[in-house]
Amino acid sequence: MKHNFPALAVSLLAGAFLLSVQAANAQTNTSPPATATRPAKTPAEQNSLPNNAPPATTNQTTGEASRDPTIKKMNEDEKAKVDNKGK
């Protein structure tokens, strides 16, 4: 089984992209050293407005039906999809 191919190349015979890969390799020379840069454990500079939402319950839904027609259609299509095939 042949398996050791340049995986980043995406298109069969797509020369333009292959050139892109070579260029991208050159770019990696300027990348910073791979020292760990970690996300903040707790984002200290992020805060929330005071909120008077009720406690979460099992019978009170909190989502809202989308008014965006595209999203509304995507939601409906996905619902129909899982009802039909279960995903």
């Binding site: 903040a40 984002p43 500079e45 992020q46 805060n47 929330s48 407005l49 909120n51 939402a53």
Partner: peptide, 14 residues
């Protein structure tokens, strides 16, 4: 990490 952000947590805040 350095961002300053304020959120409205909405209906699931509790």
């Amino acid at each position: 990490n350095a961002l300053k952000v304020t959120w409205d947590d909405g209906a699931n805040a509790k």
